[in-house]
Amino acid sequence: MQKGDHELLLTSTITWLLLLALTLVTYAAAQLGVEGKWLILGVLAIALIKGKLIIDRFMGLRWVGSFWRPMLDLYLFTVGGLIATAFLLP
């Protein structure tokens, strides 16, 4: 196994642990009674970060250039933006 391969396996493991931690933060925020605009924005931001980690690190699109990664990034931020708009509308 090459040094770079070790690093990339380590990256995958760190990504997994980060995803677990971010999920627990989302859950804890709701359990601690955080509500309203800050919960919505915080939880959505965490969901987008987690989505980006899945796309780049787990799906392996980090180094895929031309079409697929930009499409999935666009998907993530469009869906996130529309959900935020619906939740924050007066």
């Binding site: 196994m1 090459q2 770079g4 391969d5 690093e7 990339l8 396996l9 990256t11 995958s12 690190r57 787990f58 392996g60 980090r62 180094w63 895929v64 250039g65 031309s66 079409f67």
Partner: peptide, 30 residues
């Protein structure tokens, strides 16, 4: 084991870069 992100690049790397000089980033594919 190897990283999944190297799947597309591995063959090219092995032909063009000596093992000792292999790196795992900054390589793009379509």
């Amino acid at each position: 084991s190897d990283s999944p992100v190297l799947s597309q690049q591995k063959a090219t790397l092995s032909m063009t870069v000596p093992d000792s000089n292999r790196t795992s980033c900054a390589i793009t594919t379509d």
